[in-house]
Nucleic acid binder design. Sequence first.
DNA 1: ATGACTGATCTTATAATGCAAGTGGTTTTA
DNA 2: TAAAACCACTTGCATTATAAGATCAGTCAT
Lengths: 167, 167
Amino acid sequence: MVDIVQRSGCPINLTLEMLGDRWSLIIIRDLMFGNRRHFRELLTHSEEGIASNILADRLRRLTESGLLSRRDDPSHKQKGIYSLTEPSIQLVPLLAQMGAWGRRHTRVSEELSIRAELLEEGGPAMWAAFMEELRALHLDAPVPERSVFAELQAAYLAVVAKNAEAG
Amino acid sequence: MVDIVQRSGCPINLTLEMLGDRWSLIIIRDLMFGNRRHFRELLTHSEEGIASNILADRLRRLTESGLLSRRDDPSHKQKGIYSLTEPSIQLVPLLAQMGAWGRRHTRVSEELSIRAELLEEGGPAMWAAFMEELRALHLDAPVPERSVFAELQAAYLAVVAKNAEAG
DNA sequence: ATGACTGATCTTATAATGCAAGTGGTTTTA
DNA sequence: TAAAACCACTTGCATTATAAGATCAGTCAT
């Protein structure tokens, strides 16, 4: 994401050209798992502390390349609402694999990796259910019965609560 | 891959910190699917044209972070042989997902995406077989019966031959 | 000993990043 | 209604990362 020139037609390379930087997937992750939908939410609730200019730049690039869409917020004339698109919703299996790999091979924190653990255990069936739900949240698709989002959030909050009382 | 500071304990973020740049996964891909084992092979056979200083830098960083290992080549005192390690072999499912996504959402070339197609169709069973084979090639594990590497290579060469006669 | 190869480095230029402050507007509050 | 707070960005600037090409000194086969 950054390049305009195409280095090669290899699918791994082209995926890296779109998403292979330090911030794009972080933003998509927050939109997807944290349901952050506007600029300020993405900026201030960022675990990693993204800078505002970088956030603005990436939102623009991701929107241009079709991974996000933006529409005006009717409740506030300056606010925009960012949504995932079908291509970025289809990143769910990729993000699940990244989470699974990171959980195994990097020094993750328990609180932030519980979601990755559930997604890994849930496997492709859970990923598909989550994608259905994201289509409802971001693309006006019908709301499915199962809410993977709620499952992940509940598990996260349970770990946070447990660790808060433990100390 | 560049950061020393840890931005957050999120597994997706930590994976990005290790691999989220434009070249690290390209190098791992070439080592994995192209069996390029030393500097010059990685440099000159690179589809994407990596610069020698970037290649040297990434090989050093990847080796430092445990994703590659390096040993001397007994046939040439200056040559090193780079190998995948267990953590990088476990990137197979991630690379398969990246290939699958890229094949669907970017403008891939037929020749370079046939491997991604096979890997996607083969699913987790094929990934596991490929990982077994990589352990034999890179980590002195016993050689398995099935050679996914040969299957991928044959399919690639078949497409190259078909397109050469057609075009 | 010569000429090609190897892995690596230097130079120079461009681009990305992080931080702080500022912009022009909108909404909320007193 | 005026002041304060909020909103989505934008700008300026210093730092750092990346890229392409030339160059380097060991090593090898002949």
